[in-house]
């Protein structure tokens, strides 16, 4: 535990902001999805950091559940993207507007 806790937190904050920027500037739905995974991972890093520095394993158990939910989310989200691609022949989120009328 020689590394100060601030370093971990700043790395996590940086990755989260990069994920947010990725969601805003990218147009490919799959890359937007990957940016969301990046944000989930930065939240995981914060949880593990505090869990480890507090000497309390509950944060790591929470990370385990976050991973489960992320796996489920990726499976369902990619299935939705495949279903949309089958109808619209694109994954560009500028051209997907089936809820607009």
């Amino acid at each position: 535990m020689n590394v100060p806790i601030e370093y971990y937190l700043i790395l996590s904050a940086f990755m989260f902001t990069v994920g947010v920027v990725g969601v805003v500037i990218r147009r490919n739905a799959i890359v937007v999805f990957m940016s969301i995974e990046l944000m989930l991972n930065s939240a995981n890093l914060t949880l593990v950091t505090f869990s480890s520095f507090m000497g309390n394993p509950i944060g790591q158990i929470f990370v385990f559940f976050v991973m489960t939910v992320a796996a489920a989310e990726a499976a369902v989200g990619l299935a939705i993207i495949i279903a949309i691609f089958r109808n619209k022949k694109t994954v560009n989120i500028d051209e997907i507007n089936i809820f607009k009328w």
Binding site: T68, V69, A71, A72, E73, A75, V76, L78, A79, I80, I82, A83
Partner: peptide, 12 residues
């Protein structure tokens, strides 16, 4: 949840 996600992904 994982079971539900598997079935949902298959259906979609």
């Amino acid at each position: 949840l994982l079971l539900a996600a598997t079935i949902g992904a298959l259906l979609l």
